[in-house]
């Protein structure tokens, strides 16, 4: 066990959200080919409802204050993985100084994926843009160079290959939210599908 590991004791029976099973490996889910984007071309853009853009290059992004969250993740396909360790930048840091009154965010990715969530869920130390997983660079199949991490919602909200966030005053559903999945996706309330 590595020093400082904050996960649950192995002997404890972990509490899982309803309908989930525990997995020790890390399944790879993908709705398309893996985008090839290197640090030299990568950028992250926050666009406000007024059209203002805030951009970070890879060098600027990785120079921001870093968090190392250890979190449980829950996929809507019913697997959960406990005590995953990440490194990245809190959305509180990225949104600090962004002039916005928006209530909703549409996260978009290299490769065309998108997902929506309320601004409130991006704030308060509950969401990150992460670029390292389990002590190494985030592998491309898991969303590298960088992905969103919002572990209190189903993992489809944690967009891989994240490119930016559009802030808006209206809720705009994303890739899976327009195809039958729940708009919010709280695993503890089992909000899998529209209408749940």
């Amino acid at each position: 066990m590595s020093p400082g590991f904050q996960g649950r004791p192995r002997s404890a029976q972990p509490a899982l959200p309803p309908g989930q099973y525990l997995t020790e490996d890390f399944p790879v889910l993908s709705a398309g080919p893996t985008p090839k984007v290197g640090p030299e071309t990568w950028e992250f853009v926050v666009t406000t409802e007024a059209g203002a853009e805030y951009r970070w290059s890879w060098a600027e992004f990785t120079a921001l204050p870093q968090d190392t969250p250890t979190v449980d993740i829950h996929c809507v396909t019913r697997w959960s993985k406990l005590g995953t360790t990440w490194q990245g930048v809190s959305l509180d840091v990225l949104l600090d100084g962004v002039d916005t009154g928006a209530a909703y965010a549409l996260v978009h990715s290299y490769g065309g994926y998108s997902t929506n969530l309320p601004m409130a869920d991006l704030r308060g130390g509950r969401a990150w843009v992460v670029h390292r997983y389990d002590g190494g660079d985030l592998p491309a199949e898991h969303g590298g160079p960088a992905r969103l991490l919002v572990p209190h919602l189903y993992f489809w909200k944690s967009a891989k290959w994240v490119r930016g966030i559009r802030l808006g005053t209206t809720d705009e559903p994303g890739f899976w939210e327009t195809a039958g999945y729940h708009d919010y996706g709280d695993p503890w309330r089992e909000q899998r599908y529209a209408g749940d």
């Binding site: 399944p27 790879v28 889910l29 993908s30 709705a31 398309g32 080919p33 809507v76 396909t77 489809w156 899976w176 195809a179 039958g180 999945y181």
Partner: peptide, 11 residues
Amino acid sequence: VYPHAPGLVAR
């Protein structure tokens, strides 16, 4: 068709 996803995605 990408089947390892929350739904089937055909491209």
